[in-house]
Nucleic acid binder design. Structure first.
Lengths: 171, 171
DNA sequence: GTATAAAGTTTTATTGCCCAAACTTTGTGC
DNA sequence: GCACAAAGTTTGGGCAATAAAACTTTATAC
């Protein structure tokens, strides 16, 4: 009965619901509570509560048992968060070379704790790197090397040992 | 009275307390509840509760009214989180060129939502970039240009317009 | 059209985090 | 050593997020 969240500010969790609904609506034309629950990995009852709050705040069109649509306000947020996700994903996958699954889950966590201007800067950075061929060849070579090392040993050990040796030789 | 958090897993908030205590202990020799409260921007009573939980979990040495020290286990976590902070800070400040204050607060948010291996990779990346002079000159030049633009206009507007123009000319 | 399954909701409860206010302990100045 | 301030704690409460269980509504199969 507590009819939660009369406040103004969206929480990270709520942002995530809006992003999820945005994706579902884009893909299917509308969102269902059960699809949201599945995508967000929460129970159906939790989704009901979240929808009530988001409706109160003017982010979703929703009445009990109905299909779910974002309002214009909701779409704006959903799109923005999805964009953040996209930018982080690109950085994690293309630059840091994480595997797609890990990159995705990490992007999902990062996307709610940064401001828009930082995401913009990061996006510009990734875009800029795309046009740096000499950078890429060196960086990917380094990446390949370390991946090979990781197969038989914990990388930290080896690199630390090697690093120390080299440093001593330089002195 | 609920004597919270007997569970095993540290929450982001708890990680942050450990990091804070780690810094204070490094700086002052020991942490005080009031310093923790100030650093973490919470009330003193909140800190008391957090300390009880962290003590129960074996991360801090603490008894009512006493000074606060991390256990070995606690130091390990505190140091690890502080390291994450350092890596993110370097990336945000040195690479993305955010102002120090913004970089710091953002690092503080990011540091709790990524795994160690990603931080390691990011650290390697930043380190790698340090030795890429040609990269830096181009990137900083781009950064300077955009900063000039920002002084009089919202950057997005201008860049979007310019970008569109250029794209049309190329076609 | 009715029985049944699926989808959605309500109720109730828990957990984590937080604060204000009232209280207790500790430390400091005189 | 005592009064007082500062530091710390306890009590009581609030809110966001969650789920399980019981319930209701909607859709489906026949």
């Amino acid at each position: 009965m507590p009819q939660r969240q009369k406040g103004e500010q969206l929480t990270p969790v709520q942002e995530n619901y809006l992003e999820t609904i945005f994706r579902l609506e884009t893909r299917d034309g509308a969102a269902r509570a059960s699809s949201i629950a599945e995508a967000a990995q929460v129970s159906r009852s939790t989704v009901t509560g979240a929808l009530k709050a988001l409706k109160n705040m003017g982010y979703v069109e929703y009445s009990p048992y109905s299909l779910i649509y974002l309002t214009e306000k909701g779409k704006e947020v959903g799109r923005r968060i999805a964009h953040r996700h996209f930018v982080f994903l690109a950085f994690l996958e293309k630059v840091l070379r994480l595997d797609p699954e890990k990159a995705d889950s990490t992007a999902c966590a990062l996307e709610h704790v940064v401001s828009d201007d930082i995401v913009k800067r990061l996006g510009e950075f990734v875009l800029f790197l795309k046009n740096c061929p000499e950078f890429w060849s060196d960086w990917l070579e380094k990446y390949e090397k370390e991946n090979l090392l990781e197969k038989s040993h914990t990388r930290s050990t080896i690199v630390e040992v090697l690093g120390t040796k080299q440093e001593r030789e330089q002195k």
